[in-house]
Design a protein around this nucleic acid. Structure first.
Lengths: 127, 127
DNA sequence: ATATTACTTGGAGTCAACTCAAAGTCAATA
DNA sequence: TATTGACTTTGAGTTGACTCCAAGTAATAT
């Protein structure tokens, strides 16, 4: 698979994919004899994994650490597990923050609906 | 309230609060005769509101837009409502992404637990 | 009266995560 | 054979969101 095919498949720009490879966030993709990247399944799985993790806001720093541990082999399984647990906890916290914000937005949207429908004229100009 | 008091109350640095004021993310705080900020309740409520919205990852750009509409008065209530709805939808999407990532992490953590406990020796070195 | 401390400003610097530009290579087509 | 288009690299530039610095002022403590 060429970089542009992978780029379409995962909706990442070729530049981003090359950047991820450069910083060690995904393995170095195999190359054709003329030096062009020819992505194999394993590299694609890494891209998909990284994309999923990044989409939740996980930092590149943490992910490169994970990838690095991975490359060091099975002895680092425990450390990788701890890293993932820590990140999961961060995501849970983030989820709570988002939940709180959504609830607040729901309330404000309700108020705005009443205002817009003219059912509430006593609107205090408050955030 | 001085800036350092507000800073402690909301766990934001004074620099961040000044920055928020400068870019119009919060109203200009009242000043003492010697020019020092003396935050009132309304400004504090804005800070708290902005802090909550920012904690969910909402962009400064969108929030300044909201604040700007707010300043334009009640005619913009409909537009503000739409803006909030759009942001709520974004947060819902983000929440789903995080949820998907957490589930994936849960699975991986389970696998890692088995590996660490020696219950799984057939581990394929896959992301 | 001087020193300390907390504030003020404008502007520069930092960091994460891309994103773009320039110059070059290679395979395929007109 | 020449051009086209997709790839390559290195390195610089951008964006968002702060964060820090230097120089200055004002109120308070010694």
């Amino acid at each position: 698979m060429t970089i542009s095919e992978v780029s379409k498949k995962y909706n990442l720009t070729p530049d981003t994919i090359r950047y991820y490879e450069k910083i060690g966030l995904i393995p170095k993709a195999p190359r054709t004899k003329s030096g062009i990247r020819d992505f194999d399944d394993e590299t694609c799985r890494w891209i998909e994994f990284i994309k999923c993790m990044r989409s939740s806001g996980m930092s590149i720093d943490v992910l490169t650490k994970y990838v690095e541990l991975f490359r060091q082999g099975k002895d680092t399984a425990g450390e990788r597990k701890n890293l993932l647990i820590e990140q999961r906890n961060k995501l849970l916290k983030k989820q709570e923050e988002i939940q709180a914000t959504i609830q607040r937005l729901d309330y404000k949207i309700k108020i705005y609906t009443e205002i817009v429908e003219g059912k509430r004229k006593d609107f205090l100009e408050e955030p």
